[in-house]
Design a protein around this nucleic acid. Structure first.
Length: 495
DNA sequence: CGGGTAGACGTCAGG
DNA sequence: TCCTGACGTCTA
């Protein structure tokens, strides 16, 4: 079936392909999926309406089979189902073409099926022992904290219940508790493990592999579960603890959740990520000159640092990490339509000040404001919004009477165009790089995860130069690359 | 009455 | 502000 030149129609094709790869893993290489052509009606249905998850094959059939099935079908259930499957796919294909989604379906979403199937068959090694230990330590620390909280509060209650916590805080009224900041516990430094012999290391390592959902979001992004590898804490957490655990006598301990994932022997994890992709897309779509200028200056390495320095009126080398984070929050908050109360809350200023802030922002980046207005207007007329690659999101509430519902739809419209377009580009990068690795006779790099704007690979040590040089993504990704990519996309949509 | 389950909601990690 | 998933409580 992998060699078959004729397209295969399959509901949940990714699961089928994964099973094929797992069962025949010894006889076939993962690269062989490249030859197959698979059509998945579920993905087609999701593209037509992304808020529609289509839970089962039966429900899809039911939905697309209002018209009576053509007579003369075989008597067996299998025969009938096969015919239905074929007819449903043909109907969906017609719909996709009629709605301008056919190209997106063929060039992005269909190739992705195989990529995700291959990703799910790859084992990601984890340091099982360290994970277990971390879990135990965290459990202990949580108990400690619970006890402390009870003592301070003067009564027993469930820390994890926001409801009960609220009540307790209300009763106390006097002191402000900040439980959240101290909630995490500790772990021994992982460096201690490095000198351990290979065999022991291997013995200690277990492995995991996430499940990737291609039809689970309304914006076109991917999502992952069991575990959600897209949501692993990025920054290490440091903590001071009172109790000594298992003889390790350290007061301050750091936990780096990402280091618990380890690359295979002789391999290295290599991450390639887009730089400020959403802001670049916003600059491009709005044609905002001030924003475009920032991206075109070669000496600017970090846009948010630059924005922070402009805003605070200080040199960019004096911008602190907190300033940068603040600038980032401001930009995305304002662009996606945060209200004055929310922004005030976020920045620790009064709503009146926040309101003035938003106004001056919109004044400075006028084209961005016009872009949001135009997007909302188009959504009102058509009932949906469209991303760079033609991905659609219908927003029924865009013309609603209810103010709350209507303004929410307006924010969703603006957000979709930017976030959805970013999803398009990230998926495109995935498809292109995968295709290139698959056809390479030498490269063996495996895709481990996609964290929205980042691709994580496991690369043989001897191939790091060849791999990173070939794509030169992580080293440098200047704006010019982005703009050279964009016309290609537009052209594809036209054809 | 005890115990399991489903859905809603809150918080927090990612982007 | 938008989009996710994990994990906890709470209600039915």
């Amino acid at each position: 079936m992998l060699q078959c030149k004729v397209p295969i129609i399959c509901f949940n094709a990714k699961d089928f392909l994964r099973t094929l790869l797992q069962v025949y893993g010894n006889e076939i290489s993962w690269k062989q999926v490249a030859n197959s052509v698979v059509l998945d009606p579920r993905i087609a249905a999701w593209l037509i309406n992304p808020s529609d998850t289509v839970p089962s094959f039966e429900s899809l059939i039911q939905k697309y089979f209002e018209k009576p099935s053509s007579k003369g079908a075989e008597n067996t259930d299998t025969g009938v189902n096969l015919e239905k499957l074929y007819n449903v796919m043909m109907d969906l294909a017609q719909d996709l073409k009629a709605q301008g989604l056919w190209n997106l379906f063929c060039t992005l979403e269909l190739p992705l099926i195989k990529i995700l199937a291959v990703m799910e068959t790859h084992k990601i090694y984890v340091n099982k022992q360290e994970l277990k230990k971390t879990s135990e330590i965290l459990g202990l620390r949580l108990k400690e904290l619970e006890q402390e909280a009870h003592e301070v509060a003067g009564e027993r209650f469930l820390l994890t219940s926001s409801c009960q916590l609220r009540e307790v805080l209300l009763l106390l009224l006097l002191l402000k508790l900040d439980v959240q900041d101290q909630e995490l516990a500790s772990l021994n430094k992982l460096q201690d493990l490095h000198p351990l012999p290979k065999i022991i290391l291997e013995y200690r390592q277990g492995f995991i592999s996430s499940t990737w959902n291609q039809t689970g979001t309304v914006t076109g992004r991917l999502s992952a579960k069991h575990p959600n590898i897209q949501g692993i804490s990025k920054h290490p957490v440091t903590i001071t603890k009172k109790q000594y655990i298992k003889g390790k006598e350290e007061d301050i301990i750091t936990i780096s959740p990402r280091t618990l994932f380890v690359s295979k022997n002789g391999c290295t994890f290599l991450a390639a990520d887009f730089c400020h992709i959403e802001l670049r897309i916003l600059a491009d779509l709005s044609c905002e000159p001030e924003l475009l200028k920032l991206f075109q200056e070669p000496e600017i390495t970090d846009i948010f640092t630059t924005l922070a320095s402009q805003w605070k009126g200080i040199p960019s080398d004096q911008v602190k990490h907190a300033d940068r984070e603040q600038a980032k929050r401001i930009v995305y908050s304002v662009v996606y339509g945060a209200g004055k109360e929310r922004l005030a809350d976020c920045l620790g200023i009064t709503p009146v000040q926040a309101s003035q802030f938003i106004e001056s922002f919109m004044e400075k980046y006028k084209k961005v404001y016009e872009f949001t207005k135009k997007t909302i207007e188009q959504c009102r007329n058509k009932g949906y919004v469209v991303s760079i690659m033609g991905r659609k999101r219908p927003l029924a509430n865009i013309n609603a009477q209810d103010y709350k519902l209507r303004t929410q739809a307006e924010r969703q419209a603006v957000n979709f165009v930017v976030q959805g377009s970013a999803a398009d580009l990230c998926k495109m990068a995935m498809v292109k790089i995968f295709a290139s690795v698959v056809t390479s006779p030498t490269l063996t790099a495996r895709l481990i995860a996609q964290i929205h704007d980042e691709l994580l690979f496991e690369v043989e040590d001897s191939q790091i130069q060849e791999f990173s040089g070939k794509y030169s993504l992580s080293c440098s990704f200047p704006p010019t690359h982005f703009y050279s990519l964009y016309p290609v996309i537009s052209q594809r949509i036209e054809s």
